[in-house]
Design a protein around this nucleic acid. Structure first.
Lengths: 188, 188
DNA sequence: CGTAACCGGAATATCATCATCCGCTAAGGA
DNA sequence: TCCTTAGCGGATGATGATATTCCGGTTACG
């Protein structure tokens, strides 16, 4: 594969994530191509249909998400801090990535080859972290890993249509919900 | 105005709220008409364009929202309980109404005659409630009324695209954020 | 019972997006 | 340096969805 082709491929995946984060999974292909600085033809040559593009995006970003979780787990001293750090990381670093990986993708791109495996592994690690934080008495016992994922989803789905007050301080709101999940909060 | 005409008008506003809650403010007029059990013609005769329809919806639902807040303030013994009751009420009773009044409307229907006044009054009452709850030491001091509104917005914007895990138990998630706002939670 | 207001939805106009195709460009090897 | 060919980009026609109009039929109300 020629060098420029490879370069463009990367640009397209990134652009797709960015545009879809703003306009949802049905965003016009035109926009994605333009954002990538590429003609529509190039886009279609590389990805015969939308599903293929979504699959590529999914694989790429779920991977980066899993990496971030592992990084947090290594660096932070305990499970609860790691969970917290990870959730807050999603708030500033990779909103587009999140929207892509969590909210947009599962609909159609679930079939990717490495996608399901890495996603499952990621979910499992998250669940372990949750259980550990609960065992440490730092996290409410009635909160599940799925709840954490749902929380991320809530913030990831269509950042473009998020209330401005939330969009401008995502970390603050994520922190609020984390506080609600912490052991200190009233369990009802 | 003939009796059936008036009846239909009500049905249309309700249908518009329901459909727009699911599909956003750009939902097809067809759908709205069908949901109302009415022909498209009737819809257009009553509301010359989308903006008119949005305005009508806005007035109607902001009103009902203000009523709910006042009701909660009367019934509950203290400010924090009232706030909590109101927020949780939005979770089950009137999601469509919320989506309409908070997320969908401000974009275009802000110009309605009674709209701005009642909205401002509502916001003011909400702010009073927040200040009282904070004075009572039941609510975190760094949370503002705008934050509460943003929270509602977060759940109201496009229920159709909410993660299933959230959509099926809205009250649970709202409760989580309320817990995060309560005085008990760690302020950081 | 008459009439005029009102209804419904078929028909048309409009528009945005998809997806293809082909002449041009330039990457990379000899 | 030059040649070959993978690769590029965007104009183009097809397609499907939505807005909006219009009129024959219906029904509320005096």
């Amino acid at each position: 594969m020629r060098a420029d082709a490879r370069r463009n491929l990367g640009k397209i995946v990134e652009a797709a994530a960015a545009v879809m984060a703003e306009r949802g999974p049905a965003a016009p292909m035109d926009l994605i191509a333009r954002r990538a600085g590429v003609g529509v033809g190039t886009l279609y040559r590389r990805f015969p249909d939308r599903a293929a593009l979504l699959a590529a995006m999914g694989e790429h970003y779920v991977h980066s998400l899993a990496e971030a979780l592992d990084r947090a787990a290594e660096r932070e001293p305990d499970a609860w801090s790691a969970l917290r750090a990870f959730v807050l990381w999603t708030g500033d670093a990779g909103r587009g990535a999140l929207a892509a990986a969590l909210a947009v993708l599962p609909e159609e791109a679930t079939a990717g080859p490495g996608f399901m495996e890495i996603r499952a592994r990621w979910l499992e690690r998250l669940a372990v972290l949750v259980r550990r934080a609960q065992a440490d008495g730092r996290m409410r016992a009635d909160v599940t890993a799925d709840d954490v994922v749902a929380l991320l989803n809530l913030f990831a789905c269509h950042p473009g249509s998020l209330p401005a007050h939330v969009a401008s301080r995502p970390a603050w709101f994520l922190g609020l919900m984390l506080d609600g999940m912490s052991a200190g909060a009233a369990p009802h």
